[in-house]
Design a binder for these strands. Sequence first.
DNA 1: CGTGAGACAATACCAAGGGA
DNA 2: TCCCTTGGTATTGTCTCACG
Length: 296
Amino acid sequence: MNIKTFDLNLLRVFDAIYAERNVSRAASVAGLSQPAMSNALLRLRKACSDALFVRTTGGMEPTALADELIGPVRQALAILQQSLERPNGFEPKASERTFKILLSDAGEGIVLPRLISAVLREAPHVRIEALRRPNDQYQQLLQSGEADLAIGNLAFLKSGFYQQRLFGDPYCCLARKRHPFIGPGFPLQAFLTAQHVAVATGNADDLVERALSKMRAKRDVILRVTHYHVAADVVERSNLVVTVPRNAARNARGVQILPVPLSIPAADVRQFWHRRAHKDPANQWLRGTLAKLAFD
DNA sequence: CGTGAGACAATACCAAGGGA
DNA sequence: TCCCTTGGTATTGTCTCACG
């Protein structure tokens, strides 16, 4: 038998005849005329190279091959039926789904603690997996369904994506507590004199560079790292300065949290999802749960 | 035991729909 | 437009069973 050319409707025909032991009744069950059913049986017989059912005084009795096939056929039909009749709703209490969320390290720190406590309350069997990937992979991961959501200040996600603002996150500067020339005032001159750490995955440094170029000013970046918490550690042990979202500095110890002496807008932290997930009830539930969280 | 009626599967033929 | 597939109606073939 060639599965590529096999008419899967014939599985329903097979199941109906097996159950009814009668072609006419099977036809009525399957919503066909008796001759159409008989013709379908003929095609099944050709496909299987077996009579499948033989006429006896007790009705159409299955052959050994038919007895062998009925189990797998019914299993396959049941799986199909279950899949097609999948309820439209998402049941948080019963779901064992794993949600994959793209987050920055700053995002993990602020979002995950709040999200997981809400999830544990409403959906005790749901799992959350935080994914850390380069920005240029976000689009593909959301598109393919490998990630359910992305959270952050992700202006590069545009066509094909929906978004919803979760909270605003103003930027701040970090410098170590016993810094030789940086204290509570932190004027622009001190910012320009200091040596800086830049964080590749965030937007803070782009905004800083743009603000500086408008003023025709420059700063000295001597280190580039990939994560905010690494930058905070570096700052604590050196005289370097870093610009980070306020929430990324929440757990920083041994550093001064200073206002940025430049005019840069606060980070707009949003959740992004691909249009393929827009109507997925599970994804809708997750988005709704995130939207209800208080981030202030 | 032969015969006719009824039930049921199979076949003949036609129409509709979809793909090349 | 043609060809193929599928399902419809009409019909035939086969089997069983009751009855004389």
